[in-house]
Design a protein around this nucleic acid. Sequence first.
DNA 1: CCTCGTTTTCAGAATATTTTGAAAACAAAG
DNA 2: CTTTGTTTTCAAAATATTCTGAAAACGAGG
Lengths: 210, 210
Amino acid sequence: MEMPTGRSSMSPEDALRTAEDRFVAVWGQMAGAWGISRTMAEVHALLYITGKDLCTDDIMERLQISRGNASMSTRALVDWGILSRVNKRGDRKEYFQAEQDVWAMFRAIVRERMNREVDPLLASLHEIRDMTNIETSGAKPTGELREQIAGQKERIDAMLEFFVTLEKLGARFVSPSGKGLQLAASLLSKMPDFGALTSRDESSRERSSR
Amino acid sequence: MEMPTGRSSMSPEDALRTAEDRFVAVWGQMAGAWGISRTMAEVHALLYITGKDLCTDDIMERLQISRGNASMSTRALVDWGILSRVNKRGDRKEYFQAEQDVWAMFRAIVRERMNREVDPLLASLHEIRDMTNIETSGAKPTGELREQIAGQKERIDAMLEFFVTLEKLGARFVSPSGKGLQLAASLLSKMPDFGALTSRDESSRERSSR
DNA sequence: CCTCGTTTTCAGAATATTTTGAAAACAAAG
DNA sequence: CTTTGTTTTCAAAATATTCTGAAAACGAGG
């Protein structure tokens, strides 16, 4: 099968199409990072990169996936708030359209992950933290055990503090004034790092020997 | 089988142990969010919450997993830089110890995910962006096609901008002066949000009808 | 260069997730 | 109320990931 690589000479049409395909593939690989399935990511990628409104059949054909899969993926993406449904006059089909503002898109993703992951985690951590409180009120542990319990509380508190901070930052990013934080992030990222030498290739930290 | 819930009266020993188990379970559920396997997360959770140095056999016994699994999980966690190996005099076994500084731990995670996910993505996006440049130099597309190509470039650029910002923020967070950013984050998250009304329960955004 | 306690490896088994496709549900139009 | 084009559902199949366990490798002593 002939598979354009993007390297050799190619018509502009093919180059465009190949670039789309590569984008879809690359974005699909990031699926794990967003906590969604490969296909979901690909569907989103396709709609984002083409910038067009596509219907279920378009998506099925272009990505070679089943109708059921296409239906479930689009549904989930609409729930995430990064795709919207579009209806066309004189056409009973349903079209989909990707959020085109990248920052709005990531705000939606952050919002969703906060709700799904951070909030429940915070609730559980609080609950766990209290487990060694209430029961203890009767019996007063001493020595080793007392230390253990105190240590556990400290560790959970440290983690709670981290996630509470994260939660608040996330809430800000997601909130209407989130654009402010976006700006802050842009500025912050542009400023030079005045810390110790920002030596590149810290990545060569090697596997510790045993 | 008797399974302590943490609700009814319980000895402090049991409460401590049960709290540990719950923490391990909860942290294990977050595995997906960190892009690691459930067991890896559980191993890390166990070492973190107990605060003790544990050897492979301890881990196997406590989490009921195989030796191979324990070995692979600890190895991977050491590679991530959130566990360290510890050797004890007069004991040939190898012990493991979790990073106890929560912020240091998350810096390690961010560093790793930047390297594994963001950096390759940036490289790919640049490559894709150039695909419609080079080939085009020969043939000059016009009209519809020209628009399409321009649009694609804009969309990729928008995404690039986002990830470049993210990359820079990440680099700062990870760098030696990362503690500065940590402080900034803490402060930022504590300040009130002066944006539009921060109405809670935006989560009830409902499934759009068709 | 053996032994012994330990860790690592990795093919195959077990599990979990994702995808399919056909049937059911829907809803617009006649 | 029926037809028709469309979307949704979900059990079963396909695929991907994770885990096991036994064998191999390792390495500190002897």
